[in-house]
Simulated scan of single mutants.
Amino acid sequence: MASKRKDPAWKYGVEIEQNVPEGVGKKGYKYIQCNFCGKTIKEGVKRMKEHLACTHKDVAPCEHVPQKVKDEITLYLKQFKDNKISSQSYFEENVGSGAYYNPTNNSGTGSRGMRGPMDRFVNEPNDNGPEAKSTNAKEQRKQVCMDIGRFFFENGIPFYVATSPPFTNMLRSVGNFGRGFKPPSMHELRTWILDEEVKTTNAMVDDIKATWKKTGVSLLSDGWSDMGNRSLINFLVNNQYGIVFLKTVDASDCIKNAQKIFELPDEVVEEIGEDIVVQVVTDNASAYKAAGNLLMKKRPSLYWTPYAAHCIDLMLE
């Protein structure tokens, strides 16, 4: 396991189990015990390097670290910092030089990109008249759209993403914020922003789940094959308030076994509650059909329903 870890600090420490009560300790961090002094570092491998390099930064220095190891880790930290500064400088240079829209141009409304929310309530004087102002606005919008297009093209983002409401909300929020907005970093996107979105999504799912007993639900079984040719089944729950994804099951070893196919949705029905599930919807293959009959025989309160689209597809084939 240690051989797969490239960080040099792992050569001088060993990961230990986090035997701490719930709510105590550093959640998400690796606990590492120093080989030289025996101290347990609770804040992860980064703090372990600070400990070995004796930087006195957020962690006590190691009193028994050999000078050779100290020099090695110190050099690693310096190189990492230099690379980070170089990458940020390169990023900022590309941001400035590659943009179509330049808020400092001489188009008459060059300050448009530096406007804030209050500017919409203030009339901006324009010596060239409303027609020239309208022309400049159209040209600037064209340049902004080119920047948005380049973002899509260089990152291989499908064009239909532009129809997503969050895409429009994102641009509106940036425009409403106005001057000086600093975009989120990759670290922010994968840490606190992701955490907040997970909380929001969980709250939305909980709201939908709260309606299940009142409305009843349909359990949807969606079979598909991944790039490794595994036969996977997605289980989703639907009512008029929305669809909730429950889980994905690898059914590669039982895709044609009616008994096994029956057991998979049967377990999910048990998990949701038999009194809540009105129908189970699956493909119309022979194994699914037999499994549906077994399910209705065991649970007379629900119905098995084949996908209409799959039925039509089989007829056309």
Rank of each mutant, 00 (worst) to 15 (best):
R120G: 12
M118Y: 15
Y76G: 00
F91R: 05
K133S: 13
S86D: 15
M114D: 15
N136R: 08
D71Y: 05
A99I: 01
M114H: 14
K142N: 13
S107V: 05
E139G: 04
R120M: 12
T109A: 10
T109Q: 09
G108F: 01
K84P: 00
K142I: 05
F80P: 01
F80D: 15
G110A: 01
T135M: 11
S89I: 07
K68C: 06
Y76T: 01
G110H: 01
N83P: 03
P125V: 00
E139P: 01
Q67V: 11
V69N: 00
G129E: 03
V69P: 00
S97E: 10
Q143K: 12
F91L: 09
D71S: 09
M146L: 14
Q143L: 15
E93M: 10
Q140F: 04
A132G: 03
R112C: 09
S134V: 06
V69C: 02
Y90H: 10
F91V: 04
N102D: 15
T109N: 12
P125Y: 02
P103Y: 08
P130H: 09
Y101G: 01
E93Y: 11
K142Y: 11
Q143M: 12
R141E: 14
K138R: 10
G116W: 03
V95G: 04
D127E: 15
V144Y: 02
K78G: 04
K133I: 05
P130M: 10
G129K: 01
Y101A: 01
E131P: 00
G116R: 02
L77G: 00
N102R: 08
V95C: 10
E72H: 02
F121M: 08
N83L: 08
S97Y: 06
G98H: 04
R112V: 09
Q88K: 10
V69Y: 00
Y76P: 00
A99F: 03
S111D: 15
C145T: 08
N123L: 13
P125S: 02
V95T: 06
V122L: 12
E93N: 10
V144P: 00
P125H: 01
I73V: 04
M118I: 11
D119H: 05
I73Y: 00
V69K: 00
V122I: 14
D127I: 09
E139Y: 09
A132F: 04
C145Q: 14
G116Y: 03
S111H: 14
R120Q: 15
R115N: 06
Q88C: 07
I85F: 08
K138I: 05
D82V: 03
R120P: 03
Q79C: 11
D82E: 15
